[in-house]
Write a protein that binds this DNA or RNA. Structure first.
Ligand code: MN
Ligand code: MN
Ligand code: MN
Ligand code: MN
Lengths: 218, 218
DNA sequence: ATCAAAATTTAGATAGGTCTAAAAATAAAT
DNA sequence: ATTTATTTTTAGACCTATCTAAATTTTGAT
């Protein structure tokens, strides 16, 4: 069975949104992500459910089935491999890459993907740090690094801490950082090694004492 | 204005078929090429005509407008650039390449095409000898000529073909002619324009139908 | 010039994807 | 517990691309 571009985009975004919480993905959230209307989402979800790619109960949101998940992960694999190619071999910079990868990810050829993967040297992460699943859909073990060593510009997430005092835990809680919290490392200031991060649309400063005690995904 | 994959494929095949004769491309010829029905072709042609991409009068066949031609040539450019990439960099062999290029040619990004072209070293011909037009739509000067126009007596080599049917490919294989094969044009017979060539120490006759479909080095 | 065959176009139907407006269900407030 | 607001679904419509079957035009033979 083969999917349309549209179906593949739905599956991919259901996958990504479902990581954010453990409940089903809501119709509105999906509509916003896909820049379409809620009614269109409902229609499409029904079609995907008929194909057994998602589980769906009215008003309860959607989740991917195993089959749907496999397809979603494969799209992500292709997207990230193409981004590696565009950035590292064609010399693309920054933004433009994503839109092109958004189209290339739908090119349908297992042979092509495997050869591209080989050509690129079997990368495990794309240039934004996004992990690239293998052809079985297995993601690489996320390398962990301390926040004070991470390259500026990375999107990352909290993977662990090396300091377990109540004071530190309370501090993190107040900042809104917990295990799994996603954020973006915007800047590091050389004079005191403090960092500036963006988390939940807020910009926050962290001292080096804090940063050096947080493990983040690389 | 942007075209669908389908529209682009129509334009490309109208372009290619229109090279074969100087009359408009017939509905049936297009239907056969595109593996669809004549009625579907009529529908699509009307739409392309409404967009001013083709000129069309009922029952008279279609021709491309300047605008349509530009798009068609650009698709051919992309197709051939991708084939160079797939064959020379990803290590694809023979057949598989074409189908993948058939999809890749529709990826919509001028930036991508220019960067790919640069990455490949601005090739002028694809690995099958097909000329690659530049971004302005200009084809390279053919340092190639069809075998039925080559001067008698020349030593030359197979540079490409203009007929890609299985029957023709098989025929060439049987004759021992493939891309790059060297041979010597010994004689041309005026009464049927057949030619006699010497290849691997054997003397072979080729009908005009065969000769006119083989590109050779000039 | 007439008739038959082939090519082409039209009519009507189906399926995918989307939208607006209205109805129904759920969640939040009072 | 009611009422109100929000979310989600349904109903009905539209556009693209395709098909089959029937009608029309052109081509080619007699
Ligand atoms: Mn991306
Ligand atoms: Mn996409
Ligand atoms: Mn090709
Ligand atoms: Mn194509």
């Amino acid at each position: 069975m083969s999917q349309s571009f549209t179906e593949e985009n739905y599956l991919k975004h259901i996958y990504k949104l479902s990581k954010k919480s453990d409940k089903g993905v809501s119709t509105n959230a999906l509509a916003e992500r896909l820049e379409t209307k809620a009614s269109s989402v409902t229609d499409m979800i029904k079609k995907l459910a008929a194909k057994k790619l998602v589980d769906y109960k009215k008003y309860q949101g959607v989740t991917l089935t195993k089959k749907g998940q496999k397809i979603a992960v494969d799209i992500i694999r292709k997207h990230r491999l193409w981004e590696v190619f565009l950035l590292e071999h064609l010399g693309f910079g920054g933004e433009e890459v994503h839109d092109v990868a958004e189209e290339l990810e739908h090119i349908n050829s297992a042979e092509l993907v495997e050869r591209l993967d080989k050509f690129l040297g079997y990368p495990k992460y794309d240039p934004h740090g996004g992990p690239i699943p293998d052809s079985e859909g297995i993601f690489p073990e996320p390398k962990r690094v301390k926040l004070d060593e991470l390259e500026v510009g990375r999107k990352t997430k909290v993977m662990g801490i090396t300091e377990h005092s109540d004071a530190f835990l309370l501090h993190l809680k107040k900042l809104g950082m917990e295990l799994g919290t996603d954020f973006h490392l915007k800047e590091r200031f050389d004079f005191d090694r403090s960092v500036e991060i963006e988390l939940n649309n807020k910009t926050i400063q962290l001292s080096h004492d804090v940063a050096k005690n947080i493990f983040v995904a690389h």
